[in-house]
């Protein structure tokens, strides 16, 4: 149980080194998956697959069952290799938090690093793309151990800045990718919905698998403000004077509708959509990745 605490953002915030963060997150996540019976963490363990008739009942992961209501068994050897791209939104809005310990960006890179750690451990090649109004950094995918260090080193030095041009950036990325890959986008998607989906569909049409990690700050989901506030958009600089109390329910409705709309369109086009906010534990995102990974196995 002790390592599971590292799934909590407020705990992981106390660890300054990103590589350690990723390591602790993944360990905490995997420990949770093997809580009972404990089989230990091994390189052999690769991923989960759906339970089929004839599988040993001992291999059923009951933690996963408890979380997903589906039977999964653990696979202990690598069966596939998939190229993964961690696509990180670098825009200024990602550096926002209202009252959480991690900004959206911090949360995103922590999650990205954890996934990178997981993928490298599975010997999957993983690369990193960062963008705001255009692609800013590009680290080609590798499955070597050194890749993790490079990747984490790059992530650690990133600072959110500038405005987002999601469509242009993703179109640029799509042009860059030659092979079928798993593209994991970490963004708050606070841009035009159609523009977002057009870009994602472009990737999807190119044959890539896409996971959209929709990272919002907890305040962006619950709108906890009171009284009259003057809100300022960090990217556009637009300001708006609002009566927060009167706005709350409308805002929450809108943000939910936005997320629901993205989810609906993603499902329709075979895209995994993971809505998360900075107050949530990391395991939800990781699990989603593993499930997606298995689907490609």
């Amino acid at each position: 149980m002790s390592v599971e605490k590292y799934l909590k953002p407020e705990v992981i915030n106390q660890i300054k080194r990103l590589d350690l963060r990723a390591q602790f997150v993944v360990k905490g996540f995997l420990h949770g998956l093997h809580a009972s019976p404990f089989h230990g963490f091994s390189v052999e363990f690769s991923e989960h697959r759906k339970y089929t008739q004839g599988d040993d009942l001992k291999d059923i992961d009951w933690q996963v069952y408890a979380k997903t209501d589906k039977y999964y068994v653990k696979k202990f050897e690598s069966e596939t290799n998939i190229t993964g791209y961690l696509v990180m939104d670098l825009s200024h809005s990602m550096g926002y938090t209202y009252r959480q310990t991690l900004t959206k960006f911090d949360y995103g890179i922590c999650l990205a690093a954890s996934l990178a750690y997981l993928m490298v451990n599975q010997q999957d090649p993983v690369g990193l793309i960062t963008f705001n109004d255009k692609i800013r950094h590009s680290l080609p995918p590798r499955s070597k151990r050194t890749q993790l260090g490079n990747l984490i080193s790059l992530l650690s030095n990133l600072k959110p800045a500038g405005v987002t041009d999601f469509r242009n950036s993703i179109f640029q990325l799509a042009a860059m990718l030659k092979n079928r890959s798993l593209v994991m986008i970490f963004s708050d998607f606070l841009i035009d919905e159609k523009e977002t989906m057009d870009a994602v569909f472009r990737l999807r049409h190119s044959g890539h698998d896409v996971i959209m990690f929709h990272i919002l700050d907890e305040a962006e989901v619950s709108f906890p403000f009171n009284g009259v506030c003057k809100m300022k958009d960090p990217e556009t600089g637009d300001e708006l004077r609002v009566d927060a109390d009167g706005f709350r329910s409308d805002y929450v409705d809108q943000i939910e509708a936005f997320r629901a709309s993205l989810n609906r369109q993603c499902q329709k086009n075979g895209i995994d959509y993971v809505p998360i906010d900075t107050s949530m534990q990391f395991d939800k995102a990781l699990l989603e990745y593993l499930i997606s990974r298995r689907a490609r196995g």
Binding site: F225, D233, L240, D250, Y251, Q254
Partner: peptide
């Protein structure tokens, strides 16, 4: 009013007139 940064301003702008 308290001035604060809020990236999701676009959702507020949609209903600003009503609000």
């Amino acid at each position: 009013p308290v001035v604060m940064t809020f990236p999701a301003l676009r959702f507020l702008q949609k209903r600003s007139a009503t609000n």
